[in-house]
């Protein structure tokens, strides 16, 4: 059964990729990329990587698609027909692909439990992490504790992207203009005049925010954690901005607040590390945080996941604001 799903998903992925290569209308290409992300997320579930699937669906399908659509709406909607022969590109791509295929020939077969990759470092994570660190979700243990430093780097990457966007695009308050662009929409000028959208948004947004909090705090026991939670929380705010207007959303959660939240999230993460140093351990050594190592680990993971979630939420909304407030701006 699994094999069937595997082959079906891979075939769909290939078709989608080929479609993205070929289609010139950018809106279609971007939506196809979203479908590609979603199919990849399904593929991840099939390969038992549930946390990764969750993140790919939230971040890859969700945020990437929103940002790409925003970018596209501010630029062109069609790609020009390429008029040159792409022979050189095909040659380069074929050579690279051939080298990769050559390289995989000495790899163990897909799914082989005797592969060397599973025997060295991973054994300790699987056997010991529930005893040493605590959470049943081994991915959270590794992400937040064993390799917590990579996660600090990753949070810094998100902060960098947000700050880069603000530095490059600026952030300006706009007069209220409808987010819906086409004026031939009949009787509706604003999205918020559309009754169905408004009522459903008001039902959904609190549920979305609640779900985000659930994902944040339940990340120890199931798939989830700071990244996914931050993105889902941000998507609630973005939905509000889409329906009720950017101006209204900026009144609820304005840019200054978000900027402070983003910085504080990273400072919280770093601060936990520094606190560990001050209490006698190494940087990010949570055992030092409490009298009992397991309690210390639990506290440490809780705090840093909070830091990550706050920064991710703030930066995602900042990125949306940066692009959305650019519409109607003349160079």
């Amino acid at each position: 059964m699994e094999v069937f799903i595997d082959i079906a998903l891979l075939t769909l992925l290939c078709i989608t990729a080929m479609a993205v290569v070929h289609i010139r209308k950018l809106f279609c290409a971007i939506m196809l990329l979203g479908i590609f992300s979603l199919l990849s997320a399904s593929m991840f579930v099939n390969m038992d990587a549930v946390d990764v699937a969750f993140t790919e669906a939230a971040v890859g399908t969700g945020i990437s698609t929103i940002l790409l659509l925003l970018g596209m709406s501010l630029t062109n909607t069609r790609e020009k027909r390429p008029h040159y022969q792409p022979l050189f590109s095909l040659v380069v791509v074929s050579i690279t692909g051939a080298v990769l295929v050559y390289g995989t020939m000495d790899l163990p077969a897909y799914g082989d439990p005797n592969a060397s990759i599973h025997h060295h470092v991973a054994q300790r994570y699987i056997k010991q992490s529930p005893l040493e660190v605590g959470p049943p979700n081994m991915v959270t243990s590794v992400l937040a504790s064993y390799r917590g430093y990579d996660t600090l780097g990753e949070t810094a990457v998100i902060l960098t992207a947000g700050m880069a966007l603000v530095a490059l695009l600026g952030m300006r308050r706009r007069k209220v203009l409808p987010m819906s662009s086409s004026s031939g929409c009949g009787d509706y000028h604003d999205m918020k005049d559309h009754l169905v959208l408004r009522i459903m948004a008001k039902i959904f947004i609190p549920l979305i925010l609640l779900f985000a909090l659930y994902v944040q705090f339940h990340g120890d026991y199931g798939p989830g954690g700071g990244f996914q939670a931050g993105v889902i929380f941000a998507s609630g705010i973005i939905l509000y901005a889409l329906i009720f207007g950017l101006e209204a959303a900026m009144k609820v959660v304005g840019y200054p607040v978000l900027r402070v939240l983003a910085a504080c999230g990273l400072l919280l993460y770093g601060g936990v590390g520094v606190a560990c140093m001050a209490l006698g351990g190494n940087f990010l050594d949570y055992n030092a945080l409490a009298h009992d190592p397991l309690h210390g680990q639990h506290l440490g993971i809780f705090l840093i996941e909070l830091g990550v979630g706050v920064t991710v939420f703030a930066i995602m909304v900042i990125m949306f604001y940066a692009f959305a407030s650019r519409r109607g701006h003349t160079a």
Binding site: A49, I126, V142, L143
Partner: peptide
């Protein structure tokens, strides 16, 4: 399944 690649890819996606 091996949790280490999952962690690496979580970072890479972001």
């Amino acid at each position: 399944s091996n949790p280490l690649p999952h962690v690496l890819i979580l970072t890479a996606i972001v």
